[in-house]
């Protein structure tokens, strides 16, 4: 199998680069899970990562906020550069990275606290104590997450009392409350019903005005609907994940260069 090491989008739009991944490899113990990833994430665009399951999509996503550090025996090589700063450098403050790069998980995971406390959790960490400040942050985050109208009268009810789709938007609001620059979404709608999924997708279009979004999805229609750029990943003979094609979404889905991408997006892939 021929492997291209460097894939660049053919259509370069007039957008700044937000994150640049250079030669990223990730190991779990001796096992190499990702190898030689090069990728540029554009500012205020939605970048989708697609590929068959087990190809390292989530591992790649978790390199952007160093959540991989939490897996024992995990080691990363290469560079992930956010606005000129290499996030993988040993001296980097992991805690600060995770504020700048927010994350939304596959299953909604609100804290068993009130809706208000869920959103206020992040700001409180950074020392914001004044009630009026917190109130405003909570309100504006919930508005940005398109949840405000549904919960404004019950801010002090448990976050767990909400429906699944609402819980996921609560988690988005919680991430927004610390003013991240990039938001990572790890299959954010895979546990939700179609209507809730649609709401999340609409929300992403709103959020993209202010935030850079990277989303992992196994749902190709979703990637085609919401994203501006798409990265296609696949595992090689050593079972390590590789980036095989990266381009503007409409190109990936209409005239991909790689045969494997074409097979995958047209559903012919085994």
């Amino acid at each position: 199998m021929e492997i291209q090491t460097m894939v660049k989008p053919t259509t370069v739009e007039n957008t700044a680069i937000k994150v640049q991944v250079k030669g990223l490899s990730v190991y779990y113990g001796k096992f190499r899970a990702l190898t030689g990833i090069d990728l540029t994430v554009h500012d205020r665009k939605i970048t989708a990562i697609i590929g068959p399951s087990g190809c390292g999509k989530s591992t790649l996503l978790r390199s952007f906020n160093r959540m991989n550090d939490l897996t024992p025996g995990c080691r990363m090589e290469g560079e992930v550069i956010l606005e000129g700063e290499n996030l993988l450098a040993p001296a980097v403050d992991v805690v600060d990275i995770r504020r700048r790069v927010g994350m939304v998980f596959q299953r909604p995971n609100p804290f068993p606290k009130s809706i208000y406390e869920n959103v206020a959790y992040g700001p409180r960490l950074y020392g914001i104590r004044r009630k009026s400040d917190l109130d405003e942050i909570v309100a504006s985050s919930l508005k940005s997450a398109a949840l405000w109208d549904e919960v404004k009268d019950k801010l002090h009810q448990s976050g767990l009392s909400l429906s699944g789709g609402q819980q996921q938007r609560l988690c988005i609001a919680r991430a927004l409350a610390v003013e991240p620059e990039v938001i990572l979404m790890d299959e954010p709608a895979s546990a939700l019903d179609p209507i809730s999924t649609l709401k999340i997708e609409e929300l992403m279009q709103d959020l993209k005005k202010d935030y850079t979004i990277v989303i992992v999805t196994h749902n190709m229609q979703q990637a085609a609907r919401v994203s501006d750029f798409t990265a296609m990943m696949m595992i090689d003979e050593q079972r390590a994940g590789r980036l095989i094609e990266y381009d503007a979404t409409h190109i990936i889905f209409t005239r991909p260069k790689d045969k494997r991408t074409e097979d995958y997006v047209t559903g012919r892939f085994g």
């Binding site: 700001p123 950074y126 020392g127 400040d133 942050i137 003013e179």
Partner: peptide, 18 residues
């Protein structure tokens, strides 16, 4: 935003303590 600035000020002041 206003909150971004507020967060930033507090964040730096609290970083060492945290």
């Amino acid at each position: 935003t206003r909150f971004g600035k507020l967060l930033n000020q507090n964040r730096i002041a609290h970083a060492r303590k945290r």
